[in-house]
Design a protein around this nucleic acid. Structure first.
Lengths: 206, 206
DNA sequence: GTCTATATTCCGATAGAC
DNA sequence: GTCTATCGGAATATAGAC
């Protein structure tokens, strides 16, 4: 008669999803500080108190928002298995695929927030280091002494690309076809990962 | 900008300078939104009302803060005159010199603010396009059709470097010696400016 | 020139009615 | 489950006393 789930979760799942979606887009557009519970509630068409009812504090709501984020452990193996000389292109391609997808809104939210907010910056730093860079570099048999530098160089190009495409929206990078960016930026990442750091791969000075 | 005006400027120039310096560091540390007039006033050791007295609204104070920023028209000729094959390294070197200097605080303030704030993002966009990228590319005789893409690719790497070094503070880029970054990132910028965008300069595929 | 006092607005969060 | 009402605080900005 009443096909209830065991241990029913609080609240109407529909409303909860609506709030979460509104939070995701609002955080992505304005960052953690500028996005207010009230605006999120208005975007979801519910009362601000209801947001607290479902998610607790604003910080808890933010963590729930970025939690759906993609798991690098799932995606990276496909990037790392394959020709070592084109891993840069595959990494950029995966990066753009994720960020251009709906799930990318969570990443944009995190990036936007990391700038004005120390604890979100730490979140981003730890995500980059422990979830992405370490996995990538471990698989590529890099000289351990060079590993941190190579990792943060890759991060600088990737985050810069994300900044231009999703935050500052500088054209034509903001609207370029993913493959055009893969072709342009892939070799850069490739050099940061496996190339000579002091000289260009062509051996211009040699 | 123009220190000479016809009428006497209002206020004690000393106090004005102190407020401006406090505003610069506070904006650089926290971005436009998170930096409050009150903490700026506290850092300067004056009353919040005095800040308004000298600079008007918070937005006007911010503009005054970043106005002392370096003039690219002065610095870029030295970068552009010289061996065309090493202009990337010289550009990165100048970039780091400026951002590492006290004047760089204004740039950090603008970058931090551009993320959570639409009108500061426009400020940054316009500065990049009209003051830096256009000048650089005009001097290098680039195919006009490729100019916007090359420009925004350079911007993506530079802004990404600035994000890692000054905002997110990811090591070792955050503390690396400038010349190490010049050697590592210079070739990237060089390729974005004058190289083949689809293939690495070594002609890996050719 | 400098500061006190305050008007106004918005924030996150909670208590409790329905 | 949802919303009304509200508390306590911090923000920008202004008016005006000294």
């Amino acid at each position: 008669m009443s096909p209830r789930r065991s241990g029913r979760r609080p609240g109407n799942p529909d409303t909860r999803e609506v709030i979460l979606a509104a939070a995701r887009t609002t955080f992505a557009e304005r960052g953690f500080d500028a996005a207010s519970i009230r605006v999120i509630a208005a975007a979801a068409g519910v009362d601000p108190a209801l947001v607290h009812h479902y998610f607790g504090t604003k910080e808890q709501l933010f963590r729930a928002t970025i939690d759906i984020s993609v798991d690098p452990a799932e995606l990276l193996p496909a990037v790392l298995s394959g020709d070592r000389d084109t891993v840069g292109e595959r990494l950029v391609r995966m990066f753009l695929t994720v960020w251009d997808s709906p799930a990318g809104a969570a990443a944009v939210a995190l990036l936007r927030s990391a700038v004005a907010n120390e604890w979100t910056a730490r979140l981003l730093r730890e995500f980059l280091v422990t979830q992405v860079l370490r996995r990538v570099l471990d698989q590529l048999a890099i000289d351990p002494a060079e590993l941190p530098l190579r990792g943060s160089l890759v991060a600088s190009q990737m985050i810069g690309l994300a900044m231009m495409r999703y935050v500052v929206r500088l054209e034509p990078v903001a609207s370029a076809a993913p493959e055009a960016l893969v072709a342009a930026v892939g070799p850069t990442v490739q050099r940061y990962l496996t190339g000579e750091l002091a000289d260009p791969p062509g051996g211009r000075r040699a």
